[in-house]
Write a protein that binds this DNA or RNA. Structure first.
Lengths: 192, 192
DNA sequence: TAAATTTGTTCACTTAAGTTAAGAAATGCG
DNA sequence: CGCATTTCTTAACTTAAGTGAACAAATTTA
């Protein structure tokens, strides 16, 4: 399982066996059950997550209603905003499926930066990549209708449609579950 | 004018006079007229922009229609996605107003990283901040209706409503200009 | 396994955004 | 300055999403 982590890291920097062992010594691997809440609204946490297997989701509760804004699956990293500026979280993070992930506090990151300066390089590249990816995602969302967003999701993350409940998907697409049902029926209709 | 740049930088790292002069020697300040197109779709450019005064906007042209997805004003930085992965741009960048900005190629950035390693620190912090800010923006956009988005824009970037044409604002809010007009009329209605 | 809960779909109705078109207001330019 | 273009608003009509409710199906759990 840890191979997934090192495969990921090796895309950015190379590590010696000693360095790998050093990292493993931190005991950052966690196996969490479906439904487990990793982060609650109002909570101050410094934990960052990296998904090795499974799926976690980020959601707000507005007027008692869940609003899912992101899913993180294999090889996705989630650094909650509260971990960066040490403020209470304004959203929840929970497991959509049984999930294996690494949990590391930002302090551990700083420790690693001191010991292995090359980690800084990886983090800089990662956040730059992430900025670019997020911008594109946001732009696409803005310039598309819900139907276009759904069709594009089928292309880009077909797995999500299988593994995530419809009502969470709907919210992720910026609409209500009923609208997603209707929209799907409409698409099937059009095909014939 | 360059003070704005150094004030900004000083929030992250401190520079000696010599270092400042070194930076100034690169001649990166540009004064551009309203309407000037800085980046075109299909173009490969390595330029990054930092707005000192004025406003630039990023937009796509889809089926002959402009779709504005972002505005950059004083102290905002825009690193076009094409500058990062050296691919043709899929959007345009143009000046909403007469604008003073710095234009620096990513190569210059790399040169600066080599000469002043502390620049790396600034860039890492900047991109991390940007990732966080973008995530919040995206989340807010997703969980809000066009009307809520408009009301929140009035709170958060009231200047934009004054300085940017309505039809560009509409597109930025994810709706058509006619809908923005109607929505505004509706809000005034409600107040009474 | 049976009951309870969660999840997904359908329907009728309401609300708001998209579309097309027309005209007024503001801006730019010769 | 005056004409042309761009920008903004309004209106009537269409389309799609929101809402509330009912029901079926799937999943959880006691």
């Amino acid at each position: 399982m840890q191979d997934i982590l090192f495969d990921f890291i090796s895309k950015y920097i190379s590590l010696t066996e000693d360095e790998k062992n050093e990292i493993l010594s931190f005991d950052i691997f966690r196996s969490v059950k479906k439904g487990t809440i990793l982060l609650k609204e109002g909570q101050k946490s410094k934990d960052e997550y990296f998904v090795l297997k499974g799926c976690i989701r980020k959601y707000y509760i507005i007027d008692g209603e869940e609003k899912t804004t992101a899913f993180f699956t294999e090889m996705d990293a989630l650094t909650p905003h509260c971990a960066i500026n040490n403020t209470p979280s304004d959203y929840f993070v929970s497991c959509v499926e049984d999930t294996i992930l690494t949990v590391a506090s930002t302090d551990l990151g700083i420790e690693l930066f001191a010991k292995f300066p090359k980690f800084q390089d990886m983090c800089r590249i990662l956040s730059e990549e992430l900025v670019a990816k997020q911008q594109i995602n946001f732009d696409e969302f803005k310039i598309s209708s819900p139907e276009q967003r759904y069709l594009s999701l089928i292309q880009k993350r077909p797995d999500l449609i299988q593994r995530v409940p419809q009502h969470q998907l709907a919210s992720f697409l910026g609409i209500k579950p009923q609208s997603l049902s209707r929209l799907r029926a409409r698409i099937v209709e059009k095909k014939n």
